[in-house]
Design a protein around this nucleic acid. Sequence first.
DNA 1: CGTTAGCTTGAGGCCTATCAATCATAGTGG
DNA 2: CCACTATGATTGATAGGCCTCAAGCTAACG
Lengths: 242, 242
Amino acid sequence: MATRRGSAEKACEPLFARIAPAGPLDADERRAFIDAVVEILPIDNDRPVPVRSWPSFHLHVLVEGWAYRAQSLPDGARQITDVLLPGDFCGFALSTSHDSFQDVRTCGHARVAVLRKDVVAARGPAMLGRSLQWARDAEARILRSRLVSLGRQDARARVAYFLSEMHDRLRDVGLAEGGTFTCPLTQEQLGDVLGLTPVHVNRVLQKLRADGLIVFNRPDVVIPDLARLHAVANFDGGSFEG
Amino acid sequence: MATRRGSAEKACEPLFARIAPAGPLDADERRAFIDAVVEILPIDNDRPVPVRSWPSFHLHVLVEGWAYRAQSLPDGARQITDVLLPGDFCGFALSTSHDSFQDVRTCGHARVAVLRKDVVAARGPAMLGRSLQWARDAEARILRSRLVSLGRQDARARVAYFLSEMHDRLRDVGLAEGGTFTCPLTQEQLGDVLGLTPVHVNRVLQKLRADGLIVFNRPDVVIPDLARLHAVANFDGGSFEG
DNA sequence: CGTTAGCTTGAGGCCTATCAATCATAGTGG
DNA sequence: CCACTATGATTGATAGGCCTCAAGCTAACG
């Protein structure tokens, strides 16, 4: 039980880092989350995250690894609408009836913490509401900034923007030090995020490498000069942050 | 006062229709919204909607006309991220500090109802929370479906998808009868929504007209055969509805 | 050592952007 | 009543970014 409690504690750390901008949590509020952890699911590469449809009594938090939400078109094309990183909620905004359209899948090995909403709410209903609301709004901001990227940026800027976004979001939860982080996405998956073909993703990545803007040997990414990459991406760090 | 009350009542109708899927409101809950109306702002064409930044004690609901939220890039390009229709909330998901990036502007004459959150909450806190949450989720669904459209559909499908979406959303609030509705957006604004140049929007519209899929003389739109347009758009009515 | 997944490279073509001009309509002021 | 102007829609020619198809390459793995 001590180890169980300990792992729940560790698992919640990225979550706390993620929702910190919503207002810092005191020790008691952190406990509320930690004690609400029912289980921590290990999930293999490319498997669906078992997020239940609304109304759900559980919160699902990605605590390790990457995941994404994707939607497929009749012609076989696929668009990844969300990239989920440690500390992100997997679950909300799933509609009552269309879970089948957009499912959440892991990318590499991942772990998902399942929390009981009522347990958190019992100890800090306002805090829980504020955290969830903030997380939702953050999600919407990310979606909007990605819309801008897909709508008005060319492939080079899109790739640069994506890497900038991943860097910042990972840094916020302590997973990117000195411009270095891990990105398990294949070039095909990158294409599905950015609305490009894998072939073109490849060419753009090579160009960015040749320009010294990035080092990318999957899964390792290094951004030597963030400011320069941001310039290519028209990236404004604040545009999707709270 | 009777007229004031009456106009608030009328103004809330599209809102009620919009959030109906979140769970039907009883007469008392409707009253809570109606009584919370502080004022109804008339806003001229192409003017900013005065949405205050978070934390706000007010809700802003578009009750008449169209509006949109847009973001501009340094090179002058612009992307419209949200199209707001009667019954939609204008305000949430505005970040604390970046209101200047994305502002809400009207498209043609519009009217915005300003509601006091506390007044609604006093009479139905759960109902208000549920409604807002539902509206947020609906917004996120729309953003995702638009991401799919921008990422994986060609110009023809994008235009078809957009018109299908507008039709359904307007129908939900009683503003599209028999495939007929009003769309005040210029072709340039359509381009900003769809990530296309106005010139290309024009050509695509002409093609859709020639194919008998739409009638479009701004601002009047007629969709003679919804099913056929949906097929072109890969439109699934449920993908952004609750 | 064959197989597989993912990355790389090349050639050709299409979709959309760009640049530029014309047209239509409505509003304005003399 | 008629220039004159402004906004938006339309049309044409050209260019370029990205897609498509196809093949070869590499590394990991049983």
